[in-house]
Design a protein around this nucleic acid. Structure first.
Length: 300
DNA sequence: CGAGTTTGACCCGCGC
DNA sequence: GCGCGGGTCAAACTCG
C-alpha cells in the first residue's frame, strides 16, 4: 500500500462513486443516484439480509432528498429507528462518531435495512443459557458441544441488528472510525477476488459488528456494513461527548459530510464545488435538519 | 503476556 | 435431502 493517494477528499471521486450505483441493466442514469443497482446492493446486503425486508430496503442516501421518491419507506439515515426501537437506539438525533480518516477516502451511505425485532447476541446467549438450564438432561460429546455453543437454537430465526452500509473510496480496507474493533472472521466472497472481513467492537457489552469488503466491481471502493448501536462512546470520540448524551450509531464520520453535500447538491451532482475539499467539521445543526426531514419522509 | 489476527471447522438458512 | 454460501467460533499464531 503506497498511501500516496493525493486527491483531496472529493476530487473527482463523487461521480465515480455514483456511477457504481447508477448502473442498471437498461443503462441510463436519470438523475444521479436513482438507478441504484440491486446487484451492487446484493454485495452490500446479503441475500439473507434482503429476506428480512423489502428489496428496496437499501436505498441511496441521496434519494431521500427526493420527496417524490417512490420508496422512501424503509430508509432511515443516521437517526436509526427500528420497529422495536422507535427512539432510534439513541436519542434519535445522534450522528456522532469521532474522527474518521478522510485523507484518501470518500464515503456513501448505501442503505439500511430494518430487520424487525432485534435482539443482541448477548441476550440470545442469556436466553439460551436459561433454556439450557430449564431443559437439563444428559449430554453426549456432541450435545455438550452444542450446548456450549452460544449460537442460536434450531428453529430460532436469525435476528439482526439494524444495519448501515457505506461505500468508501479508500486504499485501506479497515477504515478508522474511532472505535476499536477485533477481527473475528474472514471469508472469501463469491464472485469476488476480495475477502470479506468481520469485526466486532472490542468494548465490553457492546455488540456492534462491522463487515468490510471491497467491491469487486470497483476495487477502490470499500463496502463497510455496520450492524447495531454502540453502547458507549468511542475511545477516540472527539465530538460525541459534547454533541450527544447518547451512544452513537455505528457509522463513520464521513457520512456527515456526505449528508451535507447532498443537501446542497441533491440532484445531478455537477456543481463544481464538489471538487473543493470538505469542511473541517460538519454542521450538526444542518445535519439534524436533514436527518429529521428524512425520517419524516421515510415514515409516512 | 495480553490483545489482536488468522484460518479451518462448524452451523444455519436457502434454493434446487 | 443435499449443496452452497454467509456468518461465527475458537485454537493457534503473531505482535508489541
Amino acid at each position: 500500500m503506497s498511501g500516496e493517494r493525493t486527491e483531496p477528499y472529493l476530487h473527482g471521486h463523487y461521480d465515480d462513486l455514483f456511477s457504481i450505483f447508477s448502473q442498471k441493466p437498461g443503462g441510463g442514469r436519470a438523475d444521479g443516484l436513482q438507478g441504484f443497482d440491486h446487484q451492487m446492493a446484493s454485495h452490500v446486503l446479503s441475500p439473507s439480509d434482503r429476506l428480512h425486508g423489502s428489496p428496496m430496503d437499501y436505498l441511496l442516501l441521496a434519494r431521500g432528498f427526493d420527496a417524490s421518491s417512490s420508496q422512501p419507506d424503509d430508509l432511515v439515515v443516521g437517526s436509526r429507528r427500528s420497529k422495536t426501537d422507535p427512539a432510534g437506539g439513541s436519542d434519535g438525533k445522534t450522528l456522532v462518531t469521532p474522527n474518521f480518516s478522510t485523507s484518501s477516502s470518500s464515503t456513501e451511505l448505501v442503505g439500511e435495512e430494518d430487520s424487525g425485532p432485534c435482539k443482541t447476541d448477548q441476550r440470545k446467549q442469556e436466553e439460551e443459557e436459561e433454556e439450557k438450564q430449564a431443559e437439563g438432561g444428559e449430554e453426549g460429546p456432541d450435545e455438550f458441544k452444542k450446548a456450549n455453543n452460544p449460537r442460536r437454537k434450531k428453529g430460532e430465526k436469525r435476528e439482526r441488528e439494524p444495519r448501515f452500509a457505506f461505500m468508501t473510496r479508500s486504499e485501506v480496507d479497515h477504515l478508522e472510525d474511532g472505535y476499536r474493533w477485533r477481527k473475528y472472521g474472514q471469508k472469501a466472497v463469491k464472485n469476488s477476488a476480495y475477502p470479506r472481513s468481520y469485526y466486532r467492537c472490542t468494548a465490553q457489552s457492546c455488540d456492534v459488528k462491522k463487515r468490510v469488503e471491497r467491491s469487486h466491481q470497483d476495487p477502490t471502493v470499500v463496502i463497510t456494513t455496520y450492524e447495531g448501536h454502540h453502547t458507549h462512546h468511542s475511545p477516540g470520540n472527539v465530538w460525541g461527548s459534547t454533541y450527544s448524551s447518547s451512544p452513537s450509531p455505528a457509522m463513520p464520520t464521513n457520512l456527515h459530510h456526505d449528508l451535507l453535500l447532498q443537501q446542497e447538491f441533491p440532484a445531478g451532482y455537477t456543481n463544481p464545488n464538489m471538487h473543493l475539499p470538505r469542511p473541517p467539521t460538519p454542521d450538526y445543526g444542518l445535519l439534524q435538519d436533514i436527518v429529521t426531514s428524512f425520517d419524516h419522509s421515510s415514515q409516512r
